[in-house]
Simulated assay, not measured.
Amino acid sequence: MLTSPRPTSRRPARSFEYFDRPFAAMAHRGGWDDASRAPLENSLKAFQYAVDELGYSYLETDVHATSDGVLVALHDSVLDRVTDQAGRVADLPWAQVRTARIAGTEPVPTMNEIFEALPEARFNIDIKEENAIVPLVEAIRRHHAQSRVCVASFSPARLSRFRSRMGPDVAIAASIDVVAWSAYVPLLPGLLNAGVQAFQIPMSQKIGPVRLPVLTRHLLSVAKKRDMRIHVWTIDEETQMNELIDFGVDGIVSNRIDVLKQISSEHGLWC
């Protein structure tokens, strides 16, 4: 069954300040500037480097909440892979998570710290767990960040609950079910008011033994008709970046933020 956020009417992307740039070059988890740098993904240092040194406006991050409700910028549900500690974030208090170090050196940042440190940056935020919904709404309101965030999730239920608490002033990226229907079937009346402003997608998705394209001419057509934006993740190859820009996408998410800046500049799309 198709589910998605259901506001009374769908605001087009052009009505959100978040989408007022011609192209969104996004630093994936803060990114890193070249292949020789050790990734410090989701660290405040990485985000600040992307903004202060390379001039990025758009940053991508995922969020989880600790057992006592502190919202942190982290992709994984556990600390094990990227920090010097272990354990599931949702099961640990902030007092313990705050002692973990990304790549052994950088603390796990809270979204409050990131919003405060980068007051002009725009954030694409993926809600990874149910317990992160309320802390995210609170953080956005506390920092008056409604105009500079776009919220996504693989879970349509999460997106719906976020929207019901947040209201219509924050841009939303479509959940996976809306993307799938929109990529492969004609426009359905129920999708026209799905309450989303962007498709944020991989180029293709493996389903069982078959890899199907997600980015299609039909999806591009659907997006343009609904005044939606298409952002593609995660693209690190120069050739693919050029091809996607020529295809007509509205944004690219990348780890190789040095390359993405160069390519978008060459196309006259760097802001």
Score class of each variant (00 low, 15 high):
1 M>W: 11
2 L>K: 11
5 P>M: 10
20 D>C: 09
28 H>P: 06
34 D>T: 14
39 P>H: 10
40 L>V: 11
46 A>Q: 01
50 A>N: 07
57 S>D: 11
66 T>W: 02
78 V>G: 04
82 V>F: 02
89 V>M: 04
91 D>G: 00
93 P>F: 05
103 A>Y: 00
106 E>R: 04
108 V>Y: 06
109 P>M: 07
112 N>K: 04
112 N>M: 03
117 A>G: 05
118 L>K: 04
120 E>Q: 15
123 F>E: 00
125 I>C: 09
125 I>R: 03
126 D>E: 15
129 E>T: 14
135 P>I: 07
136 L>S: 08
140 I>M: 09
149 V>G: 01
152 A>N: 05
162 F>W: 09
162 F>D: 04
163 R>G: 00
165 R>C: 13
172 I>M: 11
180 A>F: 10
183 A>H: 01
184 Y>L: 15
186 P>K: 06
189 P>F: 12
190 G>Y: 09
190 G>W: 12
191 L>C: 10
193 N>E: 15
201 I>F: 06
220 L>W: 06
228 M>A: 07
230 I>E: 03
230 I>N: 01
232 V>D: 03
235 I>S: 04
247 F>S: 02
253 V>D: 03
257 I>Y: 00
258 D>C: 06
262 Q>D: 11
264 S>A: 15
266 E>K: 13
266 E>L: 11
267 H>L: 04
